[in-house]
Design a protein around this nucleic acid. Structure first.
Lengths: 224, 224
DNA sequence: TAGATTGTTAATCGATTAACAATC
DNA sequence: TAGATTGTTAATCGATTAACAATC
């Protein structure tokens, strides 16, 4: 009867969840470099966070370190991977095989992190002859069949903005419960369906905002 | 002598800055749909946030609404665009013209939001004959010349992870002060240089984490 | 034992939200 | 004036951070 119950994995703060993949990547890097043990200070440095935050984050998962020593790289890596759920294989479908869908289909970082692209779908029949990343581009009409066949729960949307909501609705209807949206539009989805958005131009706009303020500061200096 | 000084644009919270581009997009959508006036409630709905947060965010910029009436869509759109800095044109270079660089170069959302891709660079000479999105792919060696010529302050990195840090260093040396990094690695940059990261697989891992917990919840239900 | 480093506490900081006075 | 909706206040919530007791 210890204080640490196996499934106390319950409420990990969102901010921590978002950093776990970063720690995972850092640990993989350390392991590849031959490091077998590391301190919170070292791991924090390779993940680009401060060590207090790292230790606090890890404390939500359990006590996987050794005081006075640090963390076993391989052991911690496995524990985090298990916590995120990437020790298992996640089948994924990508809808919208334009430039971005093409890039996503070929992105090796998915496969190496537990995601397996099982199908590429596009509404445009002209694309159905294409083979991208070793997969034939199929009709969007095949969505339900594919989701059922491969037990897909994660869908990626890389269509134009106008099509995104109807694709999302159809994904939800077919049984998908997590959506990664690259289309520049806000999607609505029922309770229980997670939607995350990656917006390329928003990141650039945030940089522009700060850049503008830098320029402003210089102007002020020059004028004063 | 009002309470609102034009340059009190000073300290806008980071969380607010990150949402301004979302509001901008929502306003553009409303304008295209023919809406000329909207309430905070309506705008919040199309941006996918709650209205209290929206009003609080807008209050950092100034008082651009009318009590009892709402906001003039076009006026507010302009004010936000000005605040972000996208009323001016930002020249951008993209380094690394693989699948992702290709997609980024062709992404129309950049151009339409005040970003102009002035050059595509790649270290691989085999790619230097390619024309992508109407631009010739040039040698990475041309970076300094291009940055100076077009007064580029924003760089986009879409290279493999191993090359990213050296590309970033070279960008900084050439005068670039904002970097958007798509390579799956943590970049270090000197004080005064902003780095933002977009990591495709991290978003998918966050979804997997939540998906796994849904599955766990179902299992628990079945077992009980 | 002495030195090192974790895991946790508590203080601080920033973000969200509801409620409502101000005001069109 | 009455109704509507903003802009702001204040309370709450969650995230970050420094500091340090626990412990290898």
């Amino acid at each position: 009867m210890t204080a640490r119950t196996p499934d106390s994995a319950r409420d990990i703060p969102e901010a921590t969840v978002a950093r776990l993949p970063v720690y995972l990547r850092a640990l993989t890097g350390l392991a590849e470099g031959g490091t077998t043990t590391c301190s919170s200070e070292e791991l924090a440095a390779s993940a680009g966070v401060n060590s207090a935050k790292l230790r606090k984050d890890l404390s939500y998962l359990g006590s996987y370190g050794t005081r006075g020593v640090g963390y076993d790289v391989e052991y911690l890596r496995y524990q985090i991977a298990r916590e995120i759920g990437v020790t298992q294989d996640w089948p994924v479908v990508i809808v919208g095989i334009g430039n971005l869908g093409h890039a996503l289909a070929n992105y090796s970082g998915f496969r190496s992190r537990g995601f397996r692209v099982v199908a590429l779908l596009d509404a445009d029949p002209d694309r159905h002859t294409d083979v991208v990343a070793g997969l034939e581009v199929r009709s969007f009409e095949d969505l339900e069949t594919i989701v059922a066949e491969h037990d897909v729960s994660i869908g990626v949307i890389a269509t134009p903005a106008v099509a995104a909501q109807s694709v999302a609705d159809r994904m939800v209807a077919s049984g998908i419960t997590s959506i990664l949206n690259f289309a520049p539009t806000v999607l609505s989805a029922p309770e229980g369906v997670d939607v995350r958005k990656v917006d390329l131009s928003i990141e650039l706009q945030i940089l522009a905002y700060h850049e503008q303020r830098k320029a402003g500061a210089i102007e002020t200096e020059v004028l004063s």
